[in-house]
Design a protein around this nucleic acid. Sequence first.
RNA 1: GACCCCAUCGUCUAGUGGCCUAGGACACUGCCCUUUCACGGCGGCGACACGGGUUCGACUCCCGUUGGGGUCGCCA
Length: 480
Amino acid sequence: MTENPVRVRIAPSPSGYLHVGTARMAIANFLYARHTSGQFLIRIENTDAARSDDSLIEPIISALKWLGIESDEEIIFQSDRIELYKKHAQQILNDGKGYRCFCSPELLAADRAEAVANKGPLRYNRRCLNLSQEEIDKKIADGEKFAIRIQIPEGQTTFNDIVSSDLKRDNVEIEDFIIARSDGTATYNLAVVIDDNDMKISHVVRGNDHVTNTFKQIHIYNALGFTLPTFGHVPLILRPDKKKVSKRLGDKDVAQYKEEGILPEAMFNFLCLLRWSPKTDREIYNVEELIEIFNPNHFNNSNAIFNEEKLEAFNKEHIVLKSDHELATLVAPLLVDAGFTTKYWLETRWEYLRSVVSILKTRVRRISEFVALSKYFFEFDYTYDPQADEKNFTPEAVDLLNQFAERLEKLDTYSKETIEKALSEYALEKEIKKGKLIHPTRLAVSGIPNGPGLYDLLLVLGQEAVVERMKKAALYIQQK
RNA sequence: GACCCCAUCGUCUAGUGGCCUAGGACACUGCCCUUUCACGGCGGCGACACGGGUUCGACUCCCGUUGGGGUCGCCA
């Protein structure tokens, strides 16, 4: 690839957990950086002390880490840079590119209400733009609080966007927004520009919901004499009801998907292919492959709906792709949590777990499903499925079970082949169809009417357990 | 309401003027495989929002309409 290395970032604010929208942007930026051998950085945007909660930072970082995304450099915290922002706000004011606004929040709210009533644009009316020096001095002397607004010059603002085409806006549509609050602290837009500039961010790739901010931020870049980065505005991920994902509407934390048995590689792959396409018919890729084929020109420019069913399908594919050992590692703690077994027991019987996982993996869509499906591999006092019991545990099944169990018991070599041979021979001798034998046996050893192929099942459970379970079932039938 | 973005199957998408009676994936569904449930294989259902242009020819270009989304905080 011939593209120059990019320096990109993701800038979550700790006012909530990491939702799929932010995760998606992190993936896009991460891929862009890796693809061009550039750098991917993380910055925590916690300028608003009232809304930010530092205890939310760690979960966000670890959710990203779960996806395999980490910052290439030390994580930047905006809370460490408050004074720096203040200085720049002051500079804009001193340079005459901004002005003091004494309008109270209440007054501003009233302005907005009036604008709504008159069906006009909700923009600041520049009431404080032309205050005379005397008026300003008097208000300050009277102890009136003021915020600092940047003054948007006349004209038009345009920029190139690597996702959409060129974007243009008349400056009258951009209001003189506040860059410093009345307590002197910087607002989001100012802080972002200063940080992106200091961090030498070359490409700002973010959600579509930021285009209005970009138009505003360009004027800060200009006022401060900074050079503009390249922008890219990716369409949003919408909920099935077509609303922007938000925690308020109950959208899940990325970490929650982990709890629900989604593999990080599936989430990564799925999210990557939302609003971005490899332009091929293939859709299952690992991270290395995505890094290789990533191309910022392949973004779609329309919103996409997050469909959990499809995520599950991706998950299924990635589960099959994983080795039995890796899956066993993921499943083991769940089995312990479920109380099926202990950590120690599993550690000493790792091969057993591996084979259990191996014969179950094509019937599972989420890692968590392994638990329900594998109960009988670890617990012996399962009950028999009532319907299957009635159908398969008939009086004649007693002899079948006992006699077949004896044959299995006598097997010197207990393998899939010998098991199958034993069953075929016995069925032939009894002149019955194999099914007559298979169904009761399955029910006897697992308690349920479905599951892995019987020969696999008998092999994995082991000779001893199988014989014991079959005899126990025979006894059960006699007593019922 | 103002401003901006967008518009192919229910959903994710391919498609950059003729290869399209529109391809793939998920979901749904039929058949096959099979001891069961899955996996897998082969089919089916199912979309170019609408109306005007431009053109020999439009899913592809232009305009409008409609629809959807976003932003409009001393939040980020």
